[in-house]
């Protein structure tokens, strides 16, 4: 069986295979993160105190997440991820305008911003480990590390994908035929849909974990 590799819309679905494929994948991702968000709600409504008892030198009862987590750093990360979403969509728009130089700039910025997000996240995790706070410490930290860790894995995947399209993947565009350019632009649109989804997950994760 061969799935046609085309950027033209199928007559039955009205969209090309790549786009339908990525949306079906994202639908499965909704369920993956949704399951963990549901676990978060379940843990939280069943908890006597949230975040609850933390142990560092002496025992400490935390009443709010911002006593444990670094809200300014997480806010910075939110801004970084939003900015990377804009640069991602701008890179696609640059290809639509046939401006490959601009594409390289915007896609490069997207990758740098994503790396920045991971660096900030590493500082945040490092701070927790310095306090000897791990996923096994209590339910709050357990769900915090699982949710933010899974999200960070998705960010890493996005970096690898975007780095490919910034470097070796551009060979397709450089062939110069309208068909190849259309295919490359379609790939960036599909990669962009994944990247915006990663941003979208963080938009819910940030207030749920850090602020409430």
């Amino acid at each position: 069986m061969q799935i046609p590799y085309e950027v033209t819309a199928r007559p039955d679905t009205g969209v090309n295979n790549a786009k339908l494929g990525i949306w079906l994948f994202l639908a499965s991702e909704v369920m993956l993160f949704g399951g963990l968000f549901a676990a978060y709600v379940f843990l939280r409504i069943g908890a006597d105190a949230w975040p609850g008892m933390m142990v560092y030198d002496t025992e400490m009862m935390a009443e709010r997440a911002d006593e444990i987590l670094n809200v300014p750093l997480a806010t910075l990360n939110t801004m970084i991820l939003i900015a990377s979403s804009v640069t991602m969509v701008m890179s696609w728009a640059a290809l639509k305008m046939d401006r490959f130089d601009r594409y390289k700039l915007y896609m490069g910025l997207t990758i740098l911003l994503a790396l920045g997000f991971l660096v900030v996240k590493a500082f945040e995790y490092g701070d927790k480990f310095d306090h000897h706070w791990y996923a096994s410490t209590n339910n709050f930290l357990g769900i915090y590390f699982v949710l933010t860790g899974l999200h960070a894995i998705h960010v890493t995947g996005g970096i690898v994908l975007n780095a490919y399209f910034w470097g070796p993947g551009t060979k397709l565009w450089k062939r110069g035929t309208p068909r190849d350019k259309a295919h490359f632009t379609n790939r960036i649109e599909v990669a962009g849909l994944y990247w915006h989804f990663v941003d979208l997950v963080w938009i819910f994760l940030f207030p749920m974990i850090y602020l409430i």
Partner: peptide, 25 residues
């Protein structure tokens, strides 16, 4: 396109059903 919106609608329904199961439990 509508087909994408249908994909999202179906996943949204399943998501709500999953939350309902957790809260119901």
């Amino acid at each position: 396109r509508q087909v994408i919106l249908w994909v999202l609608l179906v996943s949204g329904i399943f998501l709500i059903a999953m939350f309902a199961l957790f809260i119901g439990a």
